[in-house]
Each structure stands twice: as C-alpha cells, then as structure tokens.
C-alpha cells in the first residue's frame, strides 16, 4: 500500500501571507470599500482564513466586518452514502445576511461541492445582496459550475493528488503542498 509519495511544497508561510493580503485588497477594491461586506469561513481551515482576512480588511479600511463560521455537513450531498456520519460542527452566523455582500472563504477549491452546500446554507439564512468566493488554492477539477472571485494561487494538479493546506491555528504552520500519488 504505501506507494512512494512525492511531496511538493507550493506555498510557504510567506507566500500564504502575501496571497491573503492580496485577496483582502482585491475584495475591498472590487466592492468599493468594506461597508456592506461580511465573510463566512467554511470549517475547519476556511474559518481561520476568514478571520485573518477580516483582520486584514480592518487594517486596510479601519472597518470591522462581521465574520461567520459555517459547517456544511448537513448540506452535503453524500451523507447517505457514507458508512460513518461526519461529526457536525457548530455553524455560527450571528449577523443578518440579508442584503449583505457575503464572501465565502475556504482553503481549497476542488470539485465545488462544498461551495454548493455552503451556498444553499447561506440562502437558508436569508437573501444576501450577492455571494462571492475566496479560496487560498484553486486546484481545478470542478464538478459543478462554480468559480472563485479571489484566488490565492492556482495550482495545476492531477485528480488523485492531495493538496495539503496547513494553517498555524490548527497545524502550527502555514504552508500548501501537493502530495503526488
């Protein structure tokens, strides 16, 4: 079983930081400020990235924007095919999403199914003005018509590669690497 794996580092801590700063700037630019902006991070790592982006925007615009955390387990489309039910984590969207510009934040954009679940969930909370998507890494291989508005880095991958995102809050370091099977 343990075939030879090849691990390729594609972003180090510095690169992650630069990408997030750029994404924060793009958000402010595209939305002409941060007035009506809110970010919702998708658990687990997207949630921490959302908090960091909110802090960066605060530094840029001197505005505190609302941050929500979302667990999409209950909206997954594969729930009844799993042998073991995934642990449901807390969803905390403590602000009203109605008429807000919501930026969804996740670490990796892959098939797009997680984002589909998150979109459905946000709409169940109310009707935002619009919803945008920010990801640290876009690795391709979409299975749904979904595209990110802000991308930290595009990484070409093979379908069975694994993309390993590490976040200081969880993994004690910031990095992105590809594990080639």
């Amino acid at each position: 079983m343990p075939k030879k794996q090849k691990i390729v580092l594609v972003m180090d801590a510095k690169a992650v930081e630069r990408a997030l700063i750029r994404v924060a700037h793009e958000m402010v630019e595209k939305n002409k400020g941060a007035e009506n902006l809110a970010v919702i991070g998708i658990k687990t790592r997207g949630a921490y990235l959302a908090e960091r982006i909110a802090k960066l925007i605060e530094q840029i615009e001197k505005v505190k924007i609302p941050v929500g955390l979302m667990d999409i387990t209950l909206y997954r489309d594969d729930i009844q095919t799993k042998l073991e039910q995934p642990v449901v984590q807390k969803t905390e969207v403590l602000f009203d999403v109605v008429d807000k510009v919501i930026v969804l934040v996740d670490d990796v954009l892959f098939t797009g199914r997680t984002i589909r679940a998150a979109l459905d969930q946000i709409i169940d909370f109310g009707r935002p003005k619009n919803i945008q998507l920010a990801v640290l890494v876009d690795r391709g291989h979409r299975e749904l018509p979904i595209r990110a508005d802000y991308v930290g880095k595009n990484i070409p991958t093979a379908k069975d590669d694994r993309v390993n995102v590490k976040i200081t809050e969880v993994d004690k370091e910031d990095s992105v690497s590809i594990i080639k099977q």
Partner: peptide
C-alpha cells in the same frame, strides 16, 4: 449529546430546516 447541541442551533435559524435527510 454533542451532535444535538450543534443541531439545536438550527432551531434558532430563520429557516429551521436543513436538507440532510
């Protein structure tokens, strides 16, 4: 119990329904 604690939050949402099942 932990799962119930998480799911209890749904009961406070504007739309108290999720598509899980």
């Amino acid at each position: 119990l932990d799962t119930a604690e998480t799911l209890k939050e749904i009961l406070a949402r504007p739309i108290r329904i999720v598509p899980t099942l």
